[in-house]
């Protein structure tokens, strides 16, 4: 085999809670714009986040199901950047001390049969609002209903070796998360989103430069986008050039992957959310809860 493809996936999954991650607004999808908002999820001056217990419980349940080590103490951090649908100018997420690390998922590869994908980490964070460009000409319109909805981010190890394996991983992950009732993993409604990282190398060589592909709205498109990007990178290297580390976007109409101007996420991550104590995880209680779900 001339080339080896290396893929890692970051999957964002909305949790099945009634209310948002840090406030009591409804987390429901599809309501009229800016009707499920409050001082907290609008980032009004003086508002404060209070974490949702069920979100923590579901995140821990997912972590157990994926064989992760769940940390009884983890910390919220802030990822600061400016974007119209990010009301506080920062996203509350987890950084150096995430909720869970070191798990695995069994996947059946169309090319090599059953194999194990490592899960690097699983952490809790909040979703941003939704931006609509040019719905009003020359303007960006923002709906904050989605702002603050609970998410878990699941980061895989770069153990996938083909676009088809990436799709198989996503299918397996969705199956698990749905079965344990953590999320409905509906890509169309945005309750599951994928950022795919791909690089290529000659076997035995160190990892190549990777690009990040975003804006893929179905599992089959993930496979298409990665297939395109794989081919593009190989062509670049064979032409004697270097692959640039870029963020890419997928165009579903043409099947092409194009560079996009990457968001200026200058992460000024204040580790340990200032003014927020650490996240308590009632380990025993959540473990029993998870067992109840898994074995019922």
């Amino acid at each position: 085999m001339a080339w080896e493809t290396v893929v890692g996936l970051e999957v964002h999954v909305q949790l099945l809670t009634r209310s948002k991650m840090f406030c009591g607004c409804s987390a429901a999808y599809g309501d009229p714009p800016n009707t499920n908002v409050c001082p907290v999820c609008l980032g009004l001056p003086g508002a404060l986040p209070v974490p949702n217990e069920r979100a923590v419980r579901l995140a821990v349940r997912a972590a157990f199901a994926l064989g992760c080590a769940v940390h009884s103490r983890s910390i919220f951090a802030r990822k600061n950047y400016f974007y119209p649908d990010l009301p506080k100018g920062y996203q509350i997420s987890q950084f150096e001390e995430p909720l869970a690390t070191g798990g695995r998922l069994e996947v059946v590869s169309p090319e090599r049969g059953p194999f194990t994908v490592g899960i690097k980490r699983l952490h809790l964070e909040e979703d941003s609002g939704k931006s609509f460009h040019d719905r009003v000409p020359g303007m960006t319109a923002v709906d904050f209903n989605r702002s603050g909805v609970p998410l878990i981010e699941i980061v895989s190890e770069p153990d996938l070796r083909s676009p088809a394996e990436a799709r198989a991983y996503l299918t397996a992950l969705k199956q698990v998360l749905r079965w344990i009732e953590v999320s409905d993993c509906n890509m169309e409604e945005g309750s599951l989103r994928v950022d795919a990282n791909l690089s290529v190398r000659r076997p035995g060589e160190p990892l190549g430069t990777r690009t990040e592909v975003k804006n893929v709205n179905s599992f089959s498109n993930v496979e298409r986008a990665l297939a395109f990007e794989q081919g593009r990178q190989i062509a670049v290297i064979e032409a004697g050039e270097q692959v640039e580390q870029r963020t890419m976007t997928f165009d579903a109409a043409t099947g092409e992957v194009r560079p996009t101007r990457s968001k200026e996420i200058f992460s000024l991550a204040l580790s340990g959310l200032a003014g927020f104590f650490s996240l308590p995880v009632d380990f025993i209680q959540y473990f029993l809860d998870a067992c109840q779900v898994f074995f019922s």
């Binding site: 980032g43 802030r78 400016f82 506080k88 100018g89 920062y90 904050f144 200032a274 003014g275």
Partner: peptide, 13 residues
């Protein structure tokens, strides 16, 4: 902490 807390003053909302 202030630089983070004052990021919300952006004229959007």
């Amino acid at each position: 902490e202030a630089s983070s807390n004052l990021a919300r003053y952006d004229g959007v909302r």
